[in-house]
Design a binder for these strands. Structure first.
Ligand code: FES
Ligand code: FES
Lengths: 135, 135
DNA sequence: TATTAATGATACTATAATAGTATTATTAAT
DNA sequence: ATTAATAATACTATTATAGTATCATTAATA
């Protein structure tokens, strides 16, 4: 059972690489691929998605590439997880496809929601910048 | 992105039902199905697995059914998640299928491992018994 | 303006996980 | 012997994961 998917992982590494090596500047996918040994076409799709979601800016044409749309200090792991894995849901109690009639008073659900909040907060605190400094 | 799978959810409900309605006694799958509206054949496989994993005891033959192998106070959500979803892994950094050369010094990994520990602890604290009382 | 070096969009594929169903065998009480 | 339970195992359908492949578009620059 994996919490972090491959896309999220690769995206994070690409972002870390960009922050470390280019700062505000533009980086091409090829550069990332060469340094991080990630599958090229797959990474292309990943950074394209990051651009669509407003985390990177894409620059087409010669001398193009990608740069940050937000400062690396404002990009947290929860943002990237949401891009590739959707909302993290610790409490998906279902009843044959319908919402459980129990939702409101279910004690398990309440507990899980509280854990969910904690995790969310922790993930929110992990930013590209913080890891760059902290490692 | 779901943290709890259907199996885990159904298993948990079955166990809650058993603890609430039978205590130490034997309960049949049919009884659970009727009260909890779960898909019968699927639930059969689920409780069979719980029996295999030492959480329930199965009693074959007439007047058979399932009973607890461990006291409901000692069955925690993490146990059930492990049965159906394997070990919870918050830190699955992979590099093209090989273990990342970075493993030891990776700051992200360290952070995620710490979150993982917290979640683990919380899930360990949620037992059938505690929810039965607490709700 | 033609070339080149970049991204964009979209479709395709393979494998595994999830969420079940179906069938036949075994066991134990009565 | 009958009956009421579980055991084992195989099957199926759908979705998620982890990619690959192809062709179009854009912008710098020689
Ligand atoms: S059983 Fe439905 S919300 Fe908990
Ligand atoms: S990048 Fe490999 S363990 Fe973090």
């Amino acid at each position: 059972m994996n919490f972090i998917s491959r896309d999220t992982d690769y995206a994070w590494r690409a972002l870390m690489f960009m922050a470390k090596n280019a700062g505000e500047g533009v980086v091409t996918v090829d550069e990332i691929v060469q340094e991080e040994y990630l599958p090229e076409r797959f990474l292309r799709r990943i950074v394209q998605k990051l651009a669509k979601k407003g985390i990177l800016v894409s620059h087409k044409g010669k001398k193009g590439g990608f740069s940050f749309a937000k400062s690396p200090g404002k990009i947290s792991l929860i943002d990237i997880i949401k891009v590739f894995q959707g909302n993290v849901d610790f409490t998906n109690c279902l009843l044959k496809g319908k919402v459980c009639p129990n939702v409101k008073k279910c004690a398990l659900r309440r507990k899980l929601q509280s854990i969910s909040k904690t995790v969310d907060k922790e993930l929110r605190g992990i930013t590209i910048m913080s890891l760059l400094k902290g490692s």
